[in-house]
Simulated assay, not measured.
Amino acid sequence: MKKPVLLGTVSLTLALLAGSALAGPTCTRESRDKWIPEADMKQKIAEMGYRDIRTFKTTSGNCYEIYGYDKDGRKAEVYFDPVDARIVKAEVDD
């Protein structure tokens, strides 16, 4: 009887870890009144060279996240800190 409980606990732990990995990074804990407004952030992102932004959203980790293309035309998924516009995580296709 103890093995099924142990396996169930391991499975639950792995599922929770996988779910948190899919959720993306946490970018800030600052309140939204300190965030860069979306329109201004979109402008900053364009100035960084990102273009053809297909998606711009706010994540559960308090990030601005985009799906688009970088200055070299590569597909990019990028998470930005909404307070200072720094890149927290970027995944770029080669």
Rank of each mutant, 00 (worst) to 15 (best):
M1L: 04
K3C: 00
P4D: 04
V5Q: 10
L6H: 03
L6S: 01
L7G: 00
G8L: 01
G8M: 01
G8A: 02
T9D: 00
T9I: 08
T9W: 01
V10N: 04
V10W: 03
S11F: 12
S11I: 12
S11A: 15
S11C: 11
T13H: 00
L14K: 04
A15F: 08
A15Y: 06
L16T: 03
L17H: 04
L17Q: 07
A18W: 05
A18M: 07
A18I: 07
A18V: 09
G19I: 06
S20H: 06
A21C: 06
A21W: 10
A21R: 12
L22S: 02
L22G: 06
L22H: 08
G24V: 10
G24Y: 09
P25D: 08
P25K: 05
T26P: 07
T26H: 14
T26E: 15
T26I: 14
C27Y: 00
T28V: 03
R29L: 09
E30T: 09
S31H: 14
R32L: 06
K34Q: 15
K34E: 14
K34N: 14
W35L: 13
W35Q: 06
W35V: 09
I36E: 07
I36Y: 08
P37K: 02
P37G: 01
P37Y: 00
E38Y: 03
E38S: 07
E38F: 05
A39W: 08
A39V: 11
D40K: 13
D40S: 11
D40M: 05
M41T: 03
M41V: 03
Q43M: 06
Q43R: 14
I45V: 11
I45M: 03
I45F: 02
I45T: 02
E47G: 02
M48T: 04
M48N: 10
M48F: 12
G49A: 00
Y50E: 00
Y50R: 01
Y50A: 03
Y50T: 02
R51L: 00
R51M: 07
R51F: 02
R51Q: 13
D52I: 02
D52H: 03
D52C: 01
I53C: 05
I53A: 09
I53N: 02
R54W: 00
T55L: 11
F56D: 08
F56E: 10
F56I: 02
T58M: 10
T59Y: 09
T59N: 06
S60H: 08
S60D: 14
C63P: 00
Y64F: 07
Y64G: 03
E65L: 10
Y67G: 01
Y67R: 12
G68R: 11
Y69N: 11
D70L: 05
D70Y: 09
K71W: 12
K71V: 07
K71S: 13
D72K: 15
G73K: 11
R74A: 11
K75Q: 14
K75M: 09
K75P: 09
K75E: 13
A76V: 15
A76K: 15
E77A: 08
V78R: 15
V78I: 15
Y79K: 07
Y79W: 15
Y79C: 05
F80L: 04
D81S: 12
D81F: 03
D81C: 05
D81N: 15
P82A: 02
D84H: 14
D84V: 08
A85R: 10
A85C: 08
A85V: 07
I87L: 13
I87Y: 12
V88S: 08
A90F: 05
E91F: 14
D94Y: 11
